[in-house]
């Protein structure tokens, strides 16, 4: 059924209704049916709930598992038709995937709104309650409302006939565009940069206080970190190379040339560091795969 979303010719019951009135009727019908299902779910007996969630999760995951294991059409061009039922499934899966992806984006969009809703709820409660935190919550809600107003208003202006490319030039900006630019570029982006840069201070402080040569592991960690840091300082790298070169008497084929920082750091990176990080990556990957399997089969009980 999903690939019917892609067809516009011949028209089907799913897409034929360019006529606004008919389309609206169908949309209202779909909404009513959808909310009807939601209402029915509210009445679902407790013992069936786990099964419903399992079914939905399994079917969703199964689509991609099937897409992976089912042979897909090779070098398919427009107008190609499936030659048998087996082929038909391959065509269907390939056609349905972008639709499934779009639906994921849409549902994902709705779910992102969940976070905003939750934030709003907490801070509105705080404002109503009053107390020491209320002014801060008010600041948050006000900033949010201002950003929503000017964000949408700026977008709306850019959608007006002929306005889009004109507003790319600052000379054509009006109050709304300046306000949106100030809030987004002047405040949000710069504050984000400031927030993330604060960590540098804590890293320095933590390294000074905790980076001690107390055990074999700590010594290895410290030595590797220092070699990596030094290899990223091109002045040190260059001077070290010059020193090694003078020891080698300028002979490029001398064995001593293996001990330039570039070569030492390069060897450590290629022979130990990279396989080690690859090992970490494999470990995480295996864990992720196991976790995915548990999620797909609803074996993950976290939060229940």
């Amino acid at each position: 059924m999903l690939n019917l979303f892609l067809d516009i010719d011949p028209p089907t019951i799913f897409n034929a209704h360019n006529n606004f009135q008919t389309l609206t009727t169908y949309i209202i019908g779909a909404l009513l049916a959808g909310f009807g299902i939601l209402f029915a779910l509210l009445k679902a007996p407790p013992q069936t709930r786990r099964g419903i969630v399992f079914f939905v999760t399994f079917i969703s995951g199964f689509f991609y598992v099937l897409l992976f294991i089912w042979p897909s059409p090779i070098n398919r061009s427009k107008g190609d038709a499936p030659i048998n039922g087996f082929d038909n499934v391959g065509f269907w899966l390939a056609d349905a995937q972008p639709v499934v992806s779009t639906m994921t984006q849409i549902i994902g969009g709705f779910l992102i709104g969940l976070g905003i809703f939750s934030l709003m709820r907490i801070h509105l409660k705080r404002i109503v309650k009053g107390g020491g935190d209320a002014p801060f919550s008010f600041t948050l809600v006000l900033s949010m409302i201002l950003m929503i107003i000017f964000g949408f208003w700026d977008f709306h202006q850019r959608q007006q006939p002929g306005a889009g490319p004109l507003l790319d030039n600052q000379a054509n900006w009006g109050f709304v565009n300046y306000a949106k630019d100030y809030l987004f570029d002047g405040m949000l982006q710069e504050m984000e940069a400031a927030m993330f840069s604060i960590i540098a201070f804590y890293i320095l402080s933590a390294a000074y206080r905790a980076f001690r040569v107390r055990s074999i592991e700590a010594t290895i960690l410290l030595t590797t970190a220092l070699i990596v840091i030094l290899s990223l300082m091109s002045v040190v790298e260059y001077q070290w190379g010059e020193m090694v070169n003078s020891v080698a008497g300028g002979n490029k084929n001398s064995f001593v040339q293996n001990f330039t920082l570039t070569n030492v750091a390069g060897w450590i990176r290629a022979s130990v560091q990279q396989p080690s990080i690859r090992g970490i990556d494999f470990g995480v990957g295996i864990g992720l795969l196991a976790m995915s399997l548990r999620i797909w089969l609803s074996l993950e009980r976290a939060g229940e």
Partner: peptide, 17 residues
């Protein structure tokens, strides 16, 4: 500037140790 900041970091670690 990154060179200077990294040198400070190395110095801080050395002082601590």
């Amino acid at each position: 500037t990154l060179h200077a900041a990294l040198a400070l970091m190395i110095l801080a670690i050395i002082i601590g140790n």
